[in-house]
């Protein structure tokens, strides 16, 4: 295995040994053959990435198609803050940012839909340019295996929190002017949404026998031919059940789950009160996340309509959704 260190003057890694890293080996090797195709910027990016010891070779790999170099970066939020600053600050927000997700009308499942909508709302609230691109295999394309993810220049960033971090490093943030106390409250409410509503959506979509059989599974497998649509949906369901068993949600009854959702909405409603947004007149990350969850739950028609009635009880939350919808999604 030849290495690149002489090319870029970078410290050398252990050559990958396990079969899992073969893809990355190919990436390195390939890059070497195309060294003449790399621009100066691309080289500097590679050097930054590889020279930071925190960035283990398993977290990145890159490939070159003709003259285009693309990185696959897993979980941007995991790397050291210093490195994030150097990567993010180097370039402005690119023009061709793409937000990948599944097809909304036919394919996407309820929990994924909330996440996609939240990320979309967040990017719109920041006033950033981007295009939504629907792909049937968006889930497989994502570096973390979860939708949605954005492609900004050479970077792939998936899920809400990493996207927020990535956008923040480009100089856009919704919570910059908040006090420390407010920001910690915002983070707390965001984890409440993930913890309660996120799990409740998974529970309803995959564990409720009626909904999973009639809605979720057919939708999840809709882009595959016959035996595969059944097998993949079944595998996904098993993974979700394992996850909910691990955090004690699968043992709950529907009533208990509804009760949790009610508590969560009550807390949100109290926090929102009569304000325009959760923390005053301008939106924050929390607003994007709340909108993503509640709007999806309010507008999705599921057999039994589990949570719609619960959310409808809270007038100000429904109005909040309408407000965000008309302010940021009017086009």
């Amino acid at each position: 295995m030849q290495n690149l260190s002489y090319l870029y003057n970078i410290p050398l890694f252990q050559p990958p040994t396990s079969s899992k890293t073969i893809g990355k080996t190919w990436g390195y090797y390939h890059a070497r053959n195309h060294k003449n195709n790399l621009s100066a910027t691309q080289r500097s990016i590679i050097r930054t990435l590889l020279s930071a010891t925190i960035f283990s070779p398993s977290t990145i790999w890159f490939q070159i198609e003709k003259d285009r170099l693309s990185f696959k970066v897993l979980e941007m939020a995991l790397v050291a803050d210093a490195l994030q600053a150097t990567i993010g600050a180097s370039e402005p927000w690119p023009d061709d940012v793409l937000l990948f997700q599944q097809y909304k009308a036919e394919q996407i499942t309820l929990p994924d839909c909330t996440q996609c909508l939240a990320v979309e709302a967040f990017l719109r609230m920041c006033g950033l340019r981007f295009n939504v691109k629907c792909k049937t295999n968006a889930e497989e394309m994502s570096p973390s295996g979860k939708v949605p993810f954005i492609q900004a220049g050479p970077y792939l960033v998936s899920e809400f929190d990493p996207v927020v971090g990535f956008v923040g490093r480009k100089g856009f943030s919704l919570s910059r002017d908040m006090s420390d106390t407010d920001r910690s409250e915002m983070r707390a409410y965001m984890s409440m949404l993930e913890n309660i509503l996120g799990n409740a959506e998974l529970y309803m979509a995959w564990l409720n026998p009626e909904i999973s059989k009639e809605v979720t599974k057919p939708r999840y497998g809709c882009s595959y031919p016959w035996p595969l649509n059944w097998v993949l949906a079944w595998r996904k369901q098993r993974a979700v059940i394992a996850r909910l068993t691990a955090n004690d949600w699968s043992s709950k009854s529907v009533e208990e789950v509804t009760e949790e959702v009610h508590t969560c909405c009550l807390a949100l409603s109290e926090k929102l009160d009569k304000k325009k947004f959760f923390f005053g007149d301008s939106p924050t990350e929390l607003d994007a996340l709340v909108y993503g969850h509640l709007y999806t739950l309010l507008t999705t028609k599921l057999p039994g309509g589990p949570f719609t009635s619960v959310i409808r009880e809270f007038q100000n939350l429904a109005e909040f959704c309408k407000r965000v919808d008309s302010a940021y999604f009017s086009d």
Partner: peptide, 13 residues
């Protein structure tokens, strides 16, 4: 009370 719910979730998460 709403804060209690939110921060308890934060701790658990």
């Amino acid at each position: 009370s709403a804060d209690v719910v939110a921060f308890s979730a934060l701790l658990e998460e």
